[in-house]
Design a protein around this nucleic acid. Structure first.
Length: 374
RNA sequence: GGAGGGGUGGCCGAGCGGUCAAUGGCAGCAGACUGUAAAUCUGCCGACUUCGCGUCUACGAAGGUUCGAAUCCUUCCCCCUCCA
């Protein structure tokens, strides 16, 4: 295995680990901000790092279209191109197989996409996806898969999963092994335990540097997602990192960490930050709402981010109402910082063997809800 | 003084005899967002309301024509442009 992973401790099924990549180490459980197009939207790379994030995502599909993988490679790779010196994980384009299903044609060999911006045709195969991620210089490369839609019949979920497994094997052969770089396989099978088990077995047989659980948080709900993790995660090798793709809200992450997941990514904190939603210790708030208009308090009294240290809810509300860019920047910064606070809390709770108590405190505080302005 | 154009719901602005409580946009009030086609999208937005294609009040003002008027006519009040 070319990607180092050290298991530092456990608390129940939860794990405290350390991932060693060519561009640095990552303490797990970790949350990876999504930087689809070579930027964590509304954030400077340095600011992303200041929130505590150690690794970010890039996206094969988006970077293939603009500016092109070969161009990024010629410019020194994605780290240098976007000035993020730390580890980068790239998604394979598999999510776009689902999210852009109106714009693509799938066949056993791969997928032909029409570009959402100019209609031009682009071909992605398991091999080409790996090649692009190599050109981008991703520390962690994801297998090209089909993110299965929801809801789905078991038969359709099975054939979708089996296609992804074939593609995973092809991707494994195409991947160029080298120190500090790794390839992850992605378990599919929707909410069907037998399919998840089959998928996990196949991937483990092939052998990957890490294992992702894909095709969740697509509408099935938290309960079914957790149920799926309960049966799936135990089938993944204990000595390799586990990544739950696309998840989620803070409570989703906490529940998944407790079920043995090490890595997460989600657009939630960044997208929500651009659409006025703030995540706090006491739940979610919408800064666009009139109730914040005169509120001199910060978004979250206990938060140390620049938005909370220097600015009131009233100011954030004003910026957002006025469509000032700074509003999106500050709220994104806050959300990412809060997510990282949650991850820091989880890691230290696992280290201290106090995850149950930590979780109880987290949940009861979230349940209290926001304190109204006096 | 003369000639034209116009006054529509918080604002801008369609409508120009019935299907108009009145298209749109903005503002306002909420909601959604989970490997980013997203600084996006959705709902509500005269009053009342048992929330129902229900009642009432509404398109500068007052009259009138008509079965029926935001839409036609008369007078008045404002605003804009051009000419003197």
């Amino acid at each position: 295995m070319s990607l180092g992973f050290e298991l530092l401790g456990t608390d129940g099924a939860a794990r405290r680990g350390r991932l060693a990549t060519a561009h640095g180490t990552v303490e797990t459980p970790t949350f990876m901000p999504v930087g689809t197009a070579g930027t964590v939207k509304a954030m400077m790379p340095q600011s992303v790092a200041e929130t505590g994030a150690q690794i970010v995502l890039g996206n094969t599909f988006h970077l293939m279209l603009k500016p092109g993988a070969e161009r990024v490679a010629a410019l020194g790779g994605l780290h240098r191109f976007m000035n993020w010196p730390g580890p980068i994980l790239t998604d394979s384009g598999g999510f776009q197989v689902m999210s852009l299903k109106e714009l693509r044609k799938l066949d056993p060999d791969g997928v032909t996409f029409r570009s959402p911006s100019d209609g031009s045709q682009h071909r992605l195969t398991p091999e080409r996806s790996i090649e692009i991620q190599d050109l981008l210089d991703a520390d962690i490369t994801m297998s090209f898969d089909e993110c299965t839609t929801w809801p789905v019949e078991e038969a359709a979920a099975a054939s979708s999963m089996r296609l992804s497994m074939k593609w995973a094997a092809r991707g494994r052969r195409a991947f160029r092994d080298r120190p500090g770089y790794g390839l992850f396989g992605i378990v599919q099978g929707s909410i069907f335990p037998a399919l998840r088990a089959e998928s996990a077995r196949e991937l483990v047989d092939i052998g990957f540097d890490g294992y992702a659980v894909g095709g969740l948080a697509v509408g099935e709900g938290q309960e079914m997602m957790f149920a799926t993790l309960d049966t799936t995660v135990p089938q993944l090798p204990a000595d390799r990192p586990r990544y739950l793709m696309g998840v989620g809200r803070p409570a989703d992450i906490v529940g998944a960490v407790r079920r043995g997941i090490d890595m997460f990514d989600c657009v939630m904190p960044t997208r929500a930050g651009r659409t006025a939603q703030g995540f706090t210790r006491r739940g979610e708030i919408n800064l666009r709402n009139a109730r914040h208009r005169d509120d001199p308090r910060p978004i979250d009294e206990q938060c140390g981010c620049p938005a909370c240290r220097h600015h009131s809810r009233a100011y954030l509300h004003h910026l957002i109402r006025s469509e000032e860019i700074l509003g999106a920047m500050l709220l994104t910064w806050h959300n990412l910082h809060y997510y990282q606070d949650v991850m820091r809390g989880l890691r230290s709770a696992i280290e201290g063997g106090s995850l149950d108590a930590w979780t109880a405190a987290f949940e009861s505080e979230q349940a209290l809800g926001d304190i109204p302005a006096s």
